[in-house]
C-alpha cells in the first residue's frame, strides 16, 4: 500500500513541476516578440502616450521575472488579471463559462466512454466479422472528419427536423433538464469524434492480449469467447484502455473550442476565440493555462489509475 502512495506522491510532484514549466512557457511566449508587446498590439501609428499607457497597464515597465512572479502569485490566488478588451477581471469572465465547458465535456464523456468501450469489446470479440470491418472503416472515416463537418451534418439532420435546437442559450432560469436537451447536439458531435478513436484503441488493446498464453489456456478449457474476453482480456487491457480514455477526454478539452463556436455555446472555447481575435493576451494566457492544467491533470489521473489496475507497472524503471 505504501508503494502506491509513494508512486502517487511522485506523480503529483512531477505534475506540479510540469504545470510550473507550462506556466513559464505560456508567460514566456510573449517575450518571443522581436519588438515590444504594446507596439505590436497598437500598430505603427500609435502615439508615444498611448504606448506608455498600455505599457503601464500591462506592467511592461517591470523586468520579465518580476512580471512573471506577480502573474503567477496572482493566478495561484485565483486572480488572472484584467481583460484588455473589456477591462473586466478575467476570473469573472472565466468563472461561469468554465462550468459550462466542464458540463459539455462531462456530458460528452458520459455518452462516449460506455459506448466506445462496448463497441470496442464487441469488435474485438467478433474480430474480422462484417460488424468489425464496418465499424473499423466507419471509425477511421469519422476520425478524419473536421469537427465542424460532423456538427453541421448533425444540424442539418437533427436540428432541421426540429428535434433538437442548433443553438444553446444558457440563462439563470435554465434547468438541468433543459440544458441536457439543448446541449445534446454539441455533446453528440464531441461523442462521435472521440468515440471512433477510443473504440479502435480498445479493440487493439484487447486483440493484443488475445495471443497471450493465458488466453489460449482459457480457450482450451472450453470457456465461451465472451467470457474469455470479459474475464481474462479486459481486466488486463485496463491500463491501456484507461490511458486512451484519458487521452480522449483531454482531447475533448480542445475539441470543445470548435464545437462551442458552431453551436454558439457560451463556454471557455468561445471566449478564447474572441480573445484571440481581439488579441486580448491576458485572457488567452489565462484560458490556455486552464486548458493545459486540465490536460496535465487528466494525464496524471490516467497514469495513477493504470498503475493501480496493473501493479506490474509500479516496478518499471
Amino acid at each position: 500500500m505504501t508503494g502506491i502512495w509513494r508512486m502517487i506522491g511522485q506523480r503529483l510532484l512531477l505534475g506540479v513541476l510540469t504545470l510550473f514549466i507550462i506556466s513559464l512557457v505560456i508567460f514566456g511566449a510573449t517575450e518571443l516578440l522581436p519588438g515590444d508587446l504594446a507596439r505590436e498590439l497598437l500598430g505603427q501609428s500609435a502615439t508615444e502616450e498611448t504606448l506608455a499607457a498600455l505599457r503601464e497597464q500591462l506592467g511592461l515597465n517591470e523586468p520579465a521575472p518580476v512580471r512573471y512572479w506577480n502573474w503567477l502569485t496572482g493566478v495561484l490566488q485565483g486572480d488572472f488579471g484584467v481583460s484588455m478588451a473589456t477591462q473586466r477581471p478575467i476570473s469573472e469572465l472565466v468563472g461561469a463559462r468554465l462550468g459550462n465547458t466542464l458540463f459539455l465535456a462531462l456530458y460528452a464523456a458520459a455518452l462516449s466512454v460506455p459506448l466506445s468501450l462496448l463497441l470496442g469489446v464487441l469488435a474485438a470479440l467478433w474480430r474480422n466479422s462484417v460488424f468489425d470491418r464496418a465499424s473499423n472503416a466507419l471509425a477511421l472515416t469519422v476520425i478524419s472528419f473536421p469537427e465542424f463537418f460532423v456538427a453541421y451534418i448533425l444540424i442539418l439532420w437533427l436540428a432541421q427536423t426540429g428535434l433538437f435546437p442548433s443553438m444553446v442559450r444558457i440563462t439563470g432560469a435554465t434547468t438541468t433538464g433543459d440544458l441536457l436537451y439543448s446541449a445534446f447536439l454539441p455533446a453528440l458531435t464531441l461523442t462521435l469524434v472521440v468515440t471512433a478513436h477510443m473504440m479502435r484503441m480498445t479493440r487493439a488493446a484487447i486483440i493484443n492480449l488475445m495471443a497471450s498464453p493465458y488466453i489460449e489456456m482459457a480457450r482450451l478449457k472450453g470457456m465461451s469467447p465472451m467470457r474469455v474476453v470479459l474475464r481474462h482480456a479486459v481486466p488486463n487491457a485496463l491500463a491501456p484502455i484507461i490511458n486512451v480514455v484519458a487521452l480522449n477526454l483531454a482531447y475533448l478539452i480542445t475539441g470543445v473550442v470548435v464545437v462551442e463556436v458552431v453551436f454558439v455555446y457560451p463556454g471557455l472555447g468561445q471566449l478564447m476565440i474572441d480573445a484571440v481575435t481581439n488579441r486580448d493576451i491576458p485572457v488567452v494566457q489565462a484560458i490556455a493555462l486552464i486548458f493545459a492544467s486540465a490536460y496535465v491533470l487528466l494525464n496524471l489521473l490516467a497514469d495513477v489509475l493504470s498503475t493501480v489496475t496493473n501493479p506490474r507497472l509500479m516496478h518499471r524503471t
Binding site: 507550462i22 512557457v25 511566449a29 505590436e40 480573445a275 493576451i281 496535465v296
Partner: peptide, 21 residues
C-alpha cells in the same frame, strides 16, 4: 516534452495571439 504538455490547438491559439494572424 514541456511544449507537448500543452494541447496543440491551445498552444497554436496562444502563439497566433502573440504573433498576429
Amino acid at each position: 516534452d514541456a511544449l507537448m504538455a500543452i494541447p496543440a490547438l491551445i498552444f497554436s491559439l496562444l502563439l497566433l495571439t502573440i504573433f498576429g494572424t
